[in-house]
Design a protein around this nucleic acid. Structure first.
Lengths: 155, 155
DNA sequence: GCTTTCTTACTCGGATACCTACTGTCCGAGTGGAATAGG
DNA sequence: CCTATTCCACTCGGACAGTAGGTATCCGAGTAAGAAAGC
């Protein structure tokens, strides 16, 4: 199992955008982290579609947070970039093969494997939903924020 | 993000093997769940390498649990099949690009994004480690266990 | 009848293709700003 | 000097390839059971 890199990119970009109030174009964000600009743009579009960012075209356009940082959870970002579906997908293999001709009453309850996996994944989602971009801002060293602000104002 | 199907297969196979005491060959397990036999075998090999199953070759060979079911956690099975690495891998993009020429003291602490993600993933792992194959056995309807035993003894 | 040997069928195990999905790139549509010409 | 207009550089947005990882398959090595032959 592997999470796409876009998640790390998206979170760092949200963090940077939280510090900067004016719109930031893709090219500058890509330069900040040394990332492929076009692909970063593609990932940011997913955040726009999820209404986490707003995009403004034009000469001084770019991306901006659509909400205050304390109202953007890590879960929102991850769900927007990795899709809303669970990592573990129960294919109900218990009903196939030997279980095909079992009475339907035996499958009234959800598959135990599915329940267990979903429980664990729910804990994961709960932890993600408990933290916001604002929390990341608070945890980051203040110098990092100043550095980012300075770099973007100069560049 | 998507978890491989092998995890579901592995868990169901472990559950079946917990009910049956004698070695079960791949072909029979594959027939039970209607799965591609060769590929299932490949996945079960990963469980053998992780010392969750033991494999015995020969004419009445097959796979068997290497430990009692209460000592096999779901975490063990997932780690064996999906690899020990975390789903989220911090590439330290904060140190690239604009952050390349920052003082190293600024990166003394771990990346906040990485910490947050790891915290969530740790909760996930904790939940997986808290449940064992024995728990799945207890949660499953008794009729299912009987059905599996009967099917394997006949087939 | 018992022991030893041999055959044989059955099992795992790793090496080999295929295919989906993530990664990466390109070019066009649209927009806002700035320069410019007119009043 | 102020205003309306035109032009243009800059931005996003979606459509088009490349590649890595997961999926699926096949064939060979090894083993234990069982049959057969010898004692």
């Amino acid at each position: 199992m592997r999470m796409g890199e876009g998640v790390e990119w998206g979170l760092h970009c949200c963090l940077a955008l939280a510090w900067l109030d004016e719109p930031v174009p893709t090219a500058r964000l890509a330069a900040q982290f040394d990332l492929p600009p076009a692909y970063l743009n593609k990932r940011l579009q997913a955040l726009v579609k999820a209404e986490i960012l707003t995009s403004t075209p034009g000469v001084r356009g770019g991306f901006r947070l659509a909400r205050p940082p304390e109202k953007i959870t890590l879960m929102d970002v991850v769900a927007a970039l990795e899709g809303p579906e669970d990592a573990f997908r129960c294919a109900e293999i218990r009903q196939r093969g030997a279980g095909a001709d079992a009475p339907t009453s035996e499958f009234r309850k959800r598959c135990g494997v599915d329940v267990a996996m979903r429980k664990a994944e729910l804990a994961w989602r709960r932890e993600l939903a408990a933290q916001t971009i604002a929390d990341l801002m608070a945890a980051a060293p203040r110098r990092a924020a100043d550095r980012v602000r300075r770099w973007h104002s100069v560049g």
